[in-house]
């Protein structure tokens, strides 16, 4: 905070508080309006809601780290040494969520297959697996 006077930085803090509060309110508003709690029959597309809420949360995180935790005033090397490693999580998020989704698909597939009645009239193709099923397995 070396480059700001005491009064300025004090003001900045309360501005920051207002900012975080407003962003949080917007997030909640998106959740409520988007799901039709406020205006009857009005819905936002789910992807738009998710993207805007994730974006706003990331902005909040950025603000907390950069202003409240003073990252803005640290040397760039320090900031990068702390922030860059979190990038390693990006691939983890993609891979884990993809996995979760695939467990879901497989469970559904197994459930469907268990409920299926076997069609005896179908001619044997000589193959163990029906090629139609292979597509679903992903």
């Amino acid at each position: 905070m070396a480059d700001l006077s005491y009064e300025d930085s004090k003001k900045l803090v309360f501005k920051g508080m207002a900012l975080l509060a407003v962003v949080t309110l917007i997030e909640v508003a998106i959740a409520l309006v988007g799901k039709g709690y406020v205006i009857e029959g009005f819905h936002l597309p789910v992807w738009l809601m998710y993207i805007s809420m994730i974006g706003l949360s990331l902005y909040k995180a950025y603000f907390i780290v950069y202003e409240f935790m003073h990252m803005k005033y640290e040397v760039k090397g320090l900031a990068m040494s702390v922030l860059l490693p979190t990038g390693l999580l990006v691939w983890a998020v993609i891979a884990f969520f993809n996995e979760g989704n695939s467990w879901n698909q497989r469970r559904t597939l197994i459930k469907e297959k268990n409920a299926e009645t076997i069609d005896d009239t179908r001619k044997s193709t000589g193959s163990i697996i029906d090629l139609k099923d292979v597509k679903n397995l992903n």
């Binding site: 390693l88 691939w91 983890a92 891979a95 993809n98 996995e99 695939s102 992903n138």
Partner: peptide, 16 residues
């Protein structure tokens, strides 16, 4: 970013 190569045969989605 390579951890799942320990799990190829554990039922990991072949696509990933």
């Amino acid at each position: 970013i390579v951890w799942a190569h320990h799990m190829f045969m554990s039922g990991v989605n072949p696509f990933i």
